[in-house]
Simulated scan of single mutants.
Amino acid sequence: MGTLQEHIKNYRTAPFDARFPNTNQTRNCYQNYLDFYRCQKALEVRGKDMSLCNWYQKVYKSLCPLSWVSRWDDQREAGTFAGKI
């Protein structure tokens, strides 16, 4: 079995997530977006390698429309993002 970094590198598409069993993956997209930034925030505070968070980023980038991600990024930068990170 490979390392976590190898799994992230070889990532192709979002795997099944039992938390989101329905065809509509909107919630899965949003949750992985939040998880990516929460992971980064948590590891940054501890001085840990934030590349471990890349899994969440790859998942949300494969599930979310680019327009949503762009809007959320703009909202985060402006301090108006509704999600709790």
Rank of each mutant, 00 (worst) to 15 (best):
T26L: 11
R46Q: 10
D74E: 13
L34Q: 13
E77F: 15
W55R: 06
Y30L: 10
Q25I: 11
T3E: 01
Y37N: 05
S70W: 14
T26H: 01
C64V: 12
W72G: 08
M1C: 02
Y56L: 06
C53S: 02
C39D: 07
Q75Y: 10
G83I: 14
R71A: 15
R71P: 00
H7R: 08
G79V: 09
M50E: 09
G47K: 07
L43D: 13
V45P: 01
K58E: 11
Y33D: 10
S67M: 09
W68R: 15
T13V: 07
F81E: 15
T26K: 12
M1H: 05
S51Q: 03
L43E: 10
Y33K: 02
Q40K: 14
Y60D: 04
T23A: 15
C39L: 01
N10T: 02
T3W: 04
L4W: 15
W68C: 10
K9W: 02
L34F: 04
T26E: 12
W55Q: 02
A78H: 08
F20E: 04
N32L: 00
G79Y: 14
F16E: 02
R46E: 12
Y30C: 00
Y60P: 05
W72R: 07
R27K: 10
Q40Y: 05
C53N: 08
Y37W: 08
A82Q: 09
Y30E: 15
E44A: 07
R71L: 15
W72Y: 09
S62M: 07
C29M: 06
F16Y: 11
R46G: 02
Q57E: 01
Q25E: 03
R46A: 14
Y37E: 03
D35L: 05
K9G: 03
F81I: 12
A14E: 06
E6M: 09
M50V: 07
C64T: 13
N24P: 11
S51D: 07
N22K: 14
H7I: 02
C64R: 14
K61H: 10
A82P: 01
D74I: 10
Q75I: 14
A42M: 05
V45H: 09
W55P: 06
P21G: 12
D35V: 05
S62F: 11
G2V: 15
R38D: 06
V59R: 04
Q40V: 13
K9A: 10
N24V: 11
G83V: 12
L52T: 00
T26P: 01
R38W: 13
C53V: 04
R27I: 07
D35P: 08
N24T: 11
D17L: 00
G2S: 06
